[in-house]
Design a protein around this nucleic acid. Sequence first.
DNA 1: CTTGCCCACTCGTCTATACGAGTATGCCTC
DNA 2: GAGGCATACTCGTATAGACGAGTGGGCAAG
Lengths: 262, 262
Amino acid sequence: MAALPSGILGALDPTSDRAVFRQIADQIREAIDKGRFKEGAKLPSESELVEHFGVSRMTVRNALSILQSEGLVSSEHGKGVFVRPRPPVRRLASDRFARRHRDQGKSAFTVEAEAAGSKPEVDSLEVREEKPTPDISARLGSARKVLARRRRYLLDGRPVEFAVSYLPLDLARGTQIAEPNPGPGGIYARLEELGHRLDHFDEEVRARMPSPAEVKMLRLSSGVPVISLIRTAYDTEGRAVEVCDTVMAADAYVLAYQLPAN
Amino acid sequence: MAALPSGILGALDPTSDRAVFRQIADQIREAIDKGRFKEGAKLPSESELVEHFGVSRMTVRNALSILQSEGLVSSEHGKGVFVRPRPPVRRLASDRFARRHRDQGKSAFTVEAEAAGSKPEVDSLEVREEKPTPDISARLGSARKVLARRRRYLLDGRPVEFAVSYLPLDLARGTQIAEPNPGPGGIYARLEELGHRLDHFDEEVRARMPSPAEVKMLRLSSGVPVISLIRTAYDTEGRAVEVCDTVMAADAYVLAYQLPAN
DNA sequence: CTTGCCCACTCGTCTATACGAGTATGCCTC
DNA sequence: GAGGCATACTCGTATAGACGAGTGGGCAAG
């Protein structure tokens, strides 16, 4: 049962005071880093590793769980443990909301994804009025009721981002912003048509591990953090006209910003 | 042996098809979220949980390891498992490199930390000449040799950030930039004195789980991702004069950016 | 009173075993 | 040939037990 897992992995050092399961994790990690296991490749099965290292299965599983929490591998029930492939990354440039990008009929997400050769989708669209959290309310200048627009973005069938936009109700109610489809150029174009010429955006970027709900919503494998981005849009009067709370799969994004030096 | 762990935790649902260890994790997570276990508080010990839920110790440890990988709790050998306190967060504003902040003698990190009432430290400072990786070389306009400045930043004794600055060797060699202490205003002030007036910075932000080396260097507890920030500084001639590769403990930072709307 | 040791408690590591559930393959039947 | 089933693999879940190692409090000896 179970042939040798090839000569890729070495032996344990019994004199080391490093825990056995850490030594095993180290060996597999090194093999992955050095390319001896390629992206998407299947690792030796647990029972093969048990035989190779002469340890119990729990020890092997312990080692694999380290690598899983590091985001290096992911296991698939009934199939095996695989080196986690690095998915194509979506680059968010800091000029992505520039006015010049709002002319076309399609949304920024759609245009950009198609340009990159991916199939974009938006789902679980929900628009409703609600009472904001204290944090959202404060960001919107103590708004007491808001319009919330929820949606999930997918690339080639994979969910990559979940976003909620909040707008003061007095501003959005009855306009096309309150419709599921906000029309060409998105809600920012509608806001400007309503006389709220946009001045600038503030963005706050954080990273953390996902909640179970986020794991489900973004179908995250373990060891993948999320980027939390909270953007506030201000009009030229200095009023906060929108807050967008976005949670992104961290392995699918790189954010790019340009800062002036003076 | 082990009194009742108080009435904070309920019972398992044997009819549920959700795994027992997940149910236990759910219960503890909910108790933390609802504030029934406060920040920094000690959870019931493993043996208390074993008794309370009537399961084996491995099952309890499995549940706790979920919460640990979510960054909710951290265990301390010999003491117990504790609700992970949220450390004070350092906010990086997008104007932190503005020229007007470079007048004072102290570094931006020092000034800012002292203003926030924390004790800043910088250690493991190392300055050396080396051959850049292909990525760094490309960012610096195919530089073949670079000056690398490595340092680690600490707040109140806790390491929060590790940074490496790379500068083209022909630009930095023999200047104060090659000294451990680059002088007032930091290397950006020196670069401008050398005639490289800074024009803008590009920043790339990513998030991922830390490597074992990063866990050690930043003393990260499990379930804490890192933010990787790669900044390139350009002078008014359009030349890339510095690349700074920074790894930050994600639970200690929030990045703030301001984007123009046009 | 102080010092130092011991013990009880904590989590860390590891073994051995068992069964369940998802996946893939190939053979056998129709 | 097509369909379905048996089977052998994969990882997932759970039990029971053992010993090690870090921490802190209490007790006993000085």
